[in-house]
Amino acid sequence: MKKVLLTLGIAAVLASCGSSNKSEEKAEQATTAKSEQTAMEEKASSADKNTDVSTVIEAYLSIKDALVNDDQEKAATAGKTLAGVLGEMNMGQVAEGQKKEANEIIEVAKNHGEHIAESEIDHQREHFEALGKDMKDLIAITGTDRKLYQQYCPMYNDNKGGMWLSASEEIRNPLFGSKMLKCGKVEEVINL
């Protein structure tokens, strides 16, 4: 009898620990969720159902700009937007033979967007760095609507280095933000 009571007691305490943690998290997220939602709605009403690569590049570059400015909240919003527009991407112009690869890239890139939408800034940057390569591979298939610069900072990730894409030649480092704003160089120019 005592044992049963004890077990139930332990279980109840554990369960309440878990749920209170969760609710704190929820409350934190709720404040950002509101602004995210309005941003998403604006996006949804202005864009067509089938988005094209320029919308995807746009969303990627907004994540980059937010990270340059050390703005976790804006990066999260843009990450959510990216995941959304990737899900609706128009594959009509992609050649049959490349559809499978394009879909695999989109799946991974979407996963990055979703993580950027709900992570701390260091974690956002890790996903953003990995996302850069997927974006480059996607653009190799779909083409780009603007000139892009592939930029590289050798110091990122314990000197393993990290890359990103930018629409301007000038270096503004999203992997370090204000800590090392100008670290990096142009590695490649991706033309129309």
């Binding site: 695999e104 890239i105 799946e107 991974v108 996963n111 990055h112 990995a130 997927d134």
Partner: peptide, 8 residues
């Protein structure tokens, strides 16, 4: 998972 997703 796709190879790309495995790597990720």
């Amino acid at each position: 998972y796709s190879d790309r997703m495995k790597r990720e």
